[in-house]
Simulated assay, not measured.
Amino acid sequence: MNDVSLRLSGLSKTYLAGTPGEVQVLRGADLELRAGETVALVAPSGAGKSTLLHIAGLLDTPDTGTVEIGGQDMTGKGDRRRTATRRSDVGFVYQFHHLLPEFTALENITLPQLANGVTEREARARAQDLLGRVGVANRADHRPAAMSGGEQQRVAFCRALANKPRVLLADEPTGNLDPATSDQVFAALVDLVSGTGLSALIATHNMELAARMDRMLRLDGGMLIED
């Protein structure tokens, strides 16, 4: 597929950090993420990976540059439009699962769909399907506290994909897991992404996992360089 799901052009971002003053995290970063591809984002801690993901996911705004999602330029759009686009077109996964503790796995995946106007019947059916695809269908009625770390993160993947987004943004999604569980969870993520046309940008310190993705981008000096 050649469709561009996410395009970042000339992104710059500077933060005020006391002494010595300003810290420029991004310096003209460019990226094209095509439908159906999984791209690794690697960089040392503090290099700006999270900032880049937050800007790409419309949680933050750049000082300069543009963000296009599905061909739509989101530069200067109001909060309501950005929120609607983020809810329908972007899925997020973090190092910690951030599941709602008082709800079951099934409910955690159903709720975002209900907020997006899907009927409860359709939402529950999709939630069950996603849980089955990552091998945790038997945990549908369990709350997060009753699941292992790997199971919790698989449910978090399902929740991120509940509304059929164009783009999945993941920030160290296996960073809190042991190596064996990390490998299993990553394989589940790849299975979810493959064949759907979804694009995934995954920040990771795990070079073995990064090497298994379609491409690898390195954030160096505020710019993205393809390895």
Rank of each mutant, 00 (worst) to 15 (best):
R80E: 13
P144E: 02
E226N: 03
P62D: 13
G48I: 02
L11C: 07
T14K: 02
L114Y: 00
L209Y: 07
V93A: 11
A56K: 00
G10T: 02
L106I: 14
Q153C: 04
L224Q: 01
A35N: 14
D141G: 15
E208S: 11
D141T: 10
L111I: 15
V193N: 08
S194C: 04
I225T: 03
V118C: 14
A125M: 14
T64P: 03
V90K: 00
V90R: 00
T66P: 12
R7P: 05
T110R: 14
A160E: 06
A127R: 12
M147K: 08
A210K: 01
H142P: 03
E107Q: 15
T110A: 06
L99D: 03
I202C: 03
D89A: 10
A43R: 05
S50Q: 00
G195C: 02
L209F: 09
A145E: 12
A127Y: 08
T51Q: 07
E37S: 09
A137Y: 05
A47F: 06
V93N: 05
S199Q: 10
E208A: 13
F157D: 12
A125G: 12
A47K: 09
A137H: 11
R143H: 13
M223H: 09
V167L: 05
N176R: 07
G221I: 01
R80W: 09
N116G: 08
G195F: 05
G76T: 03
H97W: 02
L33N: 06
T64F: 11
N206K: 05
I225A: 12
K164M: 13
Q24K: 12
S50M: 00
